[in-house]
Design a protein around this nucleic acid. Structure first.
Length: 299
DNA sequence: TAGTAGACAGCGCCTGGAGT
DNA sequence: ACTCCAGGCGCTGTCTACTA
């Protein structure tokens, strides 16, 4: 539940909120009023974000999308993302999160249709036409009504409706070319380049001064505009990329924690452990035990 | 022995404000 | 749009003690 637990609600009024969650599935509706900015996060779940009302700025990986009422965003697992205030104080959104194990359920598995199709394109957004949008909203509203009423068996209904929605969206994805274009000013392109640079050079001893020299900007200005556009400070973004890779190595290798810390750019194992725990809410070894059956490297 | 966690000090980042 | 300064504070590495 890491991503969902990481919501920051300061200086924001929650007008209404309904949700259901278990270990492999989350559906959550919220109506917020205020200049709310989500804490940056990534998780091992796929995310479908639907904006019912308002406008939001959505940063995914290295690009910013100005998301409007009726737009969908598909965030693959382990991809850094956050939404930010974008002009309208009030917004209503629905977020559906699910894990691979949810898709492995017998009643979902076995169809030729790939429910993960919407997560595989280059652009993570989708702008539906009226008819499909109405149908999508009707499914969401049914799920919200179930969560609100909590009648016996509502959990099953919420999941069944969500699967129907995933089928609908996977069917839709091929017939649509209309997506939300990323914000494309020269400055946004520059920040995308810088984000890409950090993503590929996170293991090196990167500093703001080094980056500013590479991209011909003053460190003060770079620090400021990077935060303004992406919503992340330089250090935040760098650490998220390092921890993301460390998580992958913990899952997929049997390297010692010390070796992993060094390979993603930390000189200090103590500091690596601290940042890892702040980000993932558990120690590196706890994370490995939870996500992999493999033991540690023997010397 | 590897990994975790807390204290501490120094440096670099962030940010408000002023200026070009 | 961009640079620079200054001040505060958070990030980062080191050290140490502790646990499994």
């Amino acid at each position: 539940m890491t991503g969902v637990d990481a919501l920051s609600l300061s200086s924001t009024d929650i007008v209404k909120r309904y949700g259901y969650y278990d270990e492999e599935f989350v559906l959550s509706y919220s109506h917020k009023n205020g200049p709310y900015n989500m804490t940056s996060h990534m998780h091992d779940q796929y995310e479908v974000y639907y904006l019912l009302k308002g406008q939001r700025s959505y940063f995914i990986k290295d690009r910013v999308y100005l998301v409007e009422q009726g737009d969908l965003v598909f965030v693959p697992k382990y991809v850094l993302h956050r939404t930010q205030f974008a002009g309208t104080l009030q917004h209503q959104r629905i977020v559906l999160n699910f894990t691979d194990s949810f898709l492995e359920r017998s009643w979902i598995k076995g169809s030729k249709l790939d429910l993960l199709k919407p997560f595989q394109g280059d652009n993570p957004t989708l702008r539906l036409k009226e008819e499909d949008r109405k149908y999508t909203e009707s499914l969401f509203f049914r799920a919200i009504a179930e969560m609100k009423n909590k009648s016996d068996g509502y959990e099953i209904c919420v999941k069944a409706i969500s699967v129907e929605l995933l089928v609908h969206l996977a069917r839709c994805i091929d017939k649509y070319v209309e997506v939300v274009a990323p914000v494309d000013s020269p400055l946004h392109r520059k920040i995308a380049e810088i984000s890409n640079y950090i993503e590929t050079h996170y293991a090196e001893p990167l500093t703001l001064t080094h980056l500013s020299q590479s991209f011909y900007l003053s460190p003060y200005y770079l620090s400021r505009v990077f935060k303004e556009i992406s919503g992340f400070s330089f250090i935040e973004y760098l650490n998220h990329n390092r921890i993301k890779e460390a998580q992958r190595l913990l899952r997929e290798s049997n390297w010692k924690v010390l070796r992993i810390a060094e390979s993603v750019g930390y000189d200090s194992i103590a500091y690596f452990g601290r940042v890892f725990k702040e980000t993932v809410h558990m120690s590196p070894l706890q994370y490995r035990r939870m996500h992999s059956g493999e033991g540690i490297e023997r010397t």
